[in-house]
Computed example of a mutant assay.
Amino acid sequence: MRIILALLSGTLFGAGLVISGMADPGRVRAFLDLFGRWDPTLAFVMGGAIVPMAIAWTVQRRLESPLGDKAFSLPETRGIDTRLAVGAILFGIGWGLGGLCPGPAIASLSLSPVAVAPFVLAMFAGMGLHRLFTR
């Protein structure tokens, strides 16, 4: 059941990325191009995500456990430290250069696998290096 819920959730998320155009690196780069041909679409997508997320947090607070697990696994709130800042900077650089972040990159594999595969491979290599050096 847990795998089915994860698959359905991931499929819904990926479909949302594709339908909204956020799997298109050109659209993301246009959002980051503040002094050129700026495209505000990503801001509307992020703004539109606030309402369903607010509903999800409200529902989550009223539930004893999630549908697919025994308990909620929520991260603790932590302050901003060097690891977080460096990670955010690296993420932003990769996002700005590639026009993709992990979710849209995976979703884009279904649209243009040859063009996106190098990014996804580099992303997994980076995840592997992180895991190797943080143990």
Rank of each mutant, 00 (worst) to 15 (best):
I3G: 11
M22K: 02
R27G: 04
R131M: 10
L63V: 08
R83V: 05
G48F: 03
L67P: 05
L97R: 05
W95S: 04
S20N: 10
G94T: 05
M22W: 06
D24I: 10
G94R: 00
T134Q: 10
V45D: 03
V116S: 02
A30H: 00
M1P: 12
A105D: 01
I50G: 09
A71T: 12
T134K: 03
F35E: 14
L63R: 15
F44P: 01
L132H: 09
D24F: 12
G26Q: 02
K70E: 14
V28I: 11
F31L: 08
K70R: 12
R135W: 07
F31S: 09
P75T: 07
G99E: 00
G16P: 01
P113W: 03
T11Y: 11
M46H: 08
L63A: 06
F31C: 09
Q60I: 02
V28A: 06
G26S: 10
D39K: 00
A125H: 00
L7I: 12
L111C: 05
A6D: 07
Q60M: 12
D24N: 14
P40W: 08
S110R: 11
R135I: 01
A105Y: 04
R61W: 03
E76R: 15
R37K: 11
A115E: 15
A15W: 15
I3L: 13
F72P: 05
A43D: 04
T77A: 15
P25N: 02
A15G: 13
F35D: 15
